[in-house]
Design a protein around this nucleic acid. Sequence first.
DNA 1: CATTCGTGGAC
DNA 2: TGTCCAAGAAT
Length: 372
Amino acid sequence: MARTEASVTDAHASSTDFSRPLLAWYDRHHRHLPWRTPPAETKLGVLPDPYRVWLSEIMLQQTTVGAVKRYFEAFVDAWPTVEALAAAQTDDVMKAWAGLGYYSRARNLKKCAETVAGEHGGRFPGSEAGLKALPGIGDYTAAAIAAIAFNRPAAVVDGNIERVVTRLYAIETPLPQAKPEIRAHVAAALPHDRPGDFAQAMMDLGATICTPRKPACVLCPITHGCTARREGTAERFPIKAPKTEKPARRGAAFVAVRADGAVLLRRRPPEGLLGGMTEVPGSAWTARHDGVSDDTAAPFPADWRAAGTIRHVFTHFALELSVFRAELPLNAPAGDGWWSAPDTLPGEALPTVMKKAIEAAIPGATKKRRKG
DNA sequence: CATTCGTGGAC
DNA sequence: TGTCCAAGAAT
């Protein structure tokens, strides 16, 4: 059944002007986050430190607020300014990032800090174009920093805002096709007095009310102009293209344990999967099964013994890793890698899949001990 | 425009 | 256990 002309007109007229009720809701119900300046202060003209905004935005790319908080605190403790981060050792940055995922973000974070410190006098550009020219900063992050840290009228569009807007206007076009249309709606609604609060209000709304499943429409401050709400179809949006299934890969990992408990590690290539991170020696990860149930792929001859199998799911494939363990003498060579003692192992730049492999061979070896 | 790039929590 | 997916960027 076709929509009446009156309902379309009404929906459009009320939806384009949702910024005021949204901001009023944000003033009362905003989330308290370590990197955020609350609206009571932004309304007085107090803006957050661009360094902290940038750091949080990079960490929050495809990553939940809950996971980011600890890392954010650790980073600002270790490196309080962009100059401090620029002067840091890249390996220390990778170690601090270990476990957060998408490690190209950490590599670009360091490059970006060096550029800002070295070529911009330690100050982040305030324009979207200037920000987007920096490593690791794309459309979303440039707009977010411009709006939040500099109060520039930038149209911020993240996953939350895509969901909110596609529901407000019942946009049937699938993502990412619908992105320009979504951006136009955001730009049309943008309140020029509070662009930073508006962006954060939209994201808070998406994170706490306009959620992917079971949205709390009864609590929504802009439900009045929402087409999907009126039609009872909120949960259908946003429409997304079907995703391809993940292939399986297999491989072997070798945990060499020296007589003093040290473990043999090596560095992965700087680009690509887990680029620049630390690993134990292992085979290639292939779709085939050969050479993973025995020690034929071992980096050197030793008394390799099966220590179990671990599974880990990456973004685009699932991995099954056969883990082997061998005891090596104190004078065993490290080759291209290094021996990491039991007290240094937990602090290494080990991605989660590698911690799982080491844990299979040496339970507890990668756990960080609490002081005291 | 499609792929590649992690991880852990929610349901 | 499986599935989705979270403040996306680079190529």
